[in-house]
Amino acid sequence: MSATLTPGSTLTGIRPASEADMTAITAIYAHHVRHGSASFETRVPDVVEMTRRRTALLEGGFPYVVVEDDGVVLGYAYAGAYRPRAAYSNTVEDSIYLRSDATGRGLGSHLLTALIGACEARGFRQMIAVVGDSANIPSIRVHERQGFRRIGTLEAVGYKHGRWLDIVLLQRRLGEGTSSAPRARDA
């Protein structure tokens, strides 16, 4: 995985996240909370909280994956409920986080591809990306290359690191999209 990866290339380092990955996942997320604007959290959750979040997602039937190289977790991605009300139960929101030294290698794109496939296999119909900070062009571009379209910007809805931050919303149809009624879900 040391070479630049391009969409469509084969990547064998993506797999479901395990409890053993949670220390690495927590460290990756901690960096984004402390230094980035992709997450609007301002306090770093500990490994117990991150494990609780992963467990809740898995119990809800959502995918949670990691990308690794030689046993080292370089990033992770998951989908979760877009909103808690029943009418939203066929729509998911994606999240992707990479180690700071693993960016620019195509890993985010590969994680997103895996996440889209896993969500389609579970029968979800829409995926929403809520990109923190309109200046987060790499995240916006990764989503656009995967068929997401911009649907709006919420201006100055977060304040972190001494500045106001926007949220860019992007959306992508999954599977049959709106061409048929979805399967029933417990919600």
Rank of each mutant, 00 (worst) to 15 (best):
D166Q: 08
G123V: 04
H143G: 10
R122L: 10
G61Y: 06
H32W: 13
W164S: 07
R52N: 10
V44A: 07
R149C: 10
S2R: 13
R52D: 13
Y97F: 09
I14Q: 04
V48G: 09
D69I: 00
T4N: 13
E176L: 12
V47G: 03
N90L: 01
I96G: 03
T55H: 12
K160M: 05
F40P: 10
I140M: 14
G75F: 04
L57S: 04
G132D: 11
Y29Q: 06
R34Q: 14
G104I: 02
R141G: 08
S2C: 01
S9I: 08
I116K: 02
R52P: 00
T153Q: 13
R183P: 04
S139C: 08
A20P: 08
M127P: 04
F148L: 11
R172I: 06
E41K: 03
V33I: 15
R105I: 00
G132S: 12
A135F: 03
H143M: 06
S100Q: 13
N136S: 08
Q146D: 04
G175S: 11
S95G: 05
R125H: 14
T4A: 13
R43M: 05
G162M: 07
V73W: 08
A114Y: 01
G177M: 11
C119I: 00
G177N: 12
P7M: 06
P138H: 10
D101E: 11
Y29E: 04
I167V: 15
Y82A: 00
S37D: 13
T26H: 07
V131K: 07
P45E: 03
T178S: 14
R149K: 14
G13N: 12
F40I: 07
T42Y: 11
G61Q: 06
I140T: 05
S18I: 00
S37Y: 03
R15Q: 05
T55C: 02
I116F: 02
R15F: 03
I140P: 08
L169T: 06
H32D: 05
G60E: 04
D186T: 14
E59H: 12
Q146V: 00
H161N: 14
R15M: 02
T91G: 00
G106N: 05
E19P: 11
V33H: 08
V67N: 03
E144A: 15
P7D: 09
P138M: 10
T51C: 03
A77M: 05
E155P: 06
R54Q: 12
S9D: 15
I25C: 13
G152R: 11
V168T: 15
V142T: 15
M1L: 14
A87P: 03
L174I: 09
R53T: 02
R53P: 02
Q126T: 15
V73E: 06
L98H: 05
A129L: 09
V157Y: 10
A114M: 00
R163K: 15
G108H: 06
L112A: 03
V47S: 06
G36F: 10
A114P: 01
R163H: 14
G158C: 11
G104D: 05
T103K: 12
E144M: 10
F148M: 10
I28P: 11
V44L: 07
V142K: 04
V131M: 06
Q171V: 01
I128H: 01
A187S: 15
V92H: 01
